[in-house]
Design a protein around this nucleic acid. Structure first.
Lengths: 151, 151
DNA sequence: GACATTGGTTTGCATTACCAATCAAACTCA
DNA sequence: TGAGTTTGATTGGTAATGCAAACCAATGTC
């Protein structure tokens, strides 16, 4: 099937904006000694309390990769491991206060860093863009895997 | 300055779509034994012939990082190094036929992988979305890249 | 011509990521 | 119940990525 021009142009735009956003995230992360993945982990764990393997699956990483990742974040006091009460094999990852503070700061920096870009649109266009992006985004999560402990 | 809601929502959408696109690129790259960065290098070198340091600057990478990156791609026959005629210190990176073929295939796979997502919009919406993204994207590197404050 | 600058590579180190192997806990079902 | 399987996580090994510092060669500048 021949891809029509609108698709071609859209994909190009999406890919370029992805690289641009990633570059911002990478830079801001680096300024706080955090990799892109660490950044992402913080963002996820911020309002969830997933088990290691759920987190790995969500990130699309191997469980063993996650072990090291959490190790380092734990050593820095940003995250903590907790034994799951329901399943003694499982380990639950949760964010510490320090981690939450840092994440909050990071979010603000990201917003500021992207402001020049988003600022080139007026409020109505921004709303429209966000609205058009919505359908493109995959279903964020198959619902809450469990109404987990809400903080 | 309080960020208005439209900005908040837009940034969230941009970041999420960035992760989604990256995840596709990473997967497709991995299927061909290419990292995200290698993928990106191929895409850039596809229609350019930059020198090592220009490429490094554009990618936001250290020169030493690029050396290894190009080494591996060269060993696989995807890229080649060429002495610059103007400056005997400089090395120019160029794509091989094999590299071009692979890049072409990758592009098609990316398009197909993203089709389900972009397909949730009709042609008119796609065009509109691409159009709205345009201003958000930074000036896509003119021939003369300014050595911006990028570390 | 001496000296600094620029362009690339090499070396050393930490991180990221995969796979395979391992161990403990939980589940199955005969 | 108990043997065997599956599941959750860690460990160890390897490769790739990335930075920084040291280095060499070509250029540029006075």
């Amino acid at each position: 099937m021949a891809p029509d021009d609108s698709e071609e142009a859209l994909i190009d735009g999406l890919v370029r904006s992805a690289f641009q956003v990633m570059s911002v995230l990478t830079r801001i992360g680096a300024e706080h000694d955090l990799s892109l993945t660490q950044l992402r982990v913080l963002g996820i764990v911020r309002d969830r309390r997933p088990r290691m393997s759920d987190l790995a699956a969500f990130l699309g990483l191997d469980k063993s990769t996650l072990s090291g990742l959490i190790d380092r974040a734990e050593r820095r006091g940003l995250l903590a491991r907790h034994a799951s009460p329901e399943d003694k094999r499982a380990v639950v990852v949760l964010i510490t206060d320090a981690g939450r503070d840092l994440t909050q700061r990071l979010y603000e920096e990201v917003r500021e860093a992207l402001a020049p870009a988003t600022g080139r649109l007026d409020a109505q266009q921004r709303q429209q863009l966000a609205h058009l992006l919505e359908p493109v985004l995959t279903p964020p999560l198959p619902a809450a895997p469990r109404p987990a402990t809400r903080r």
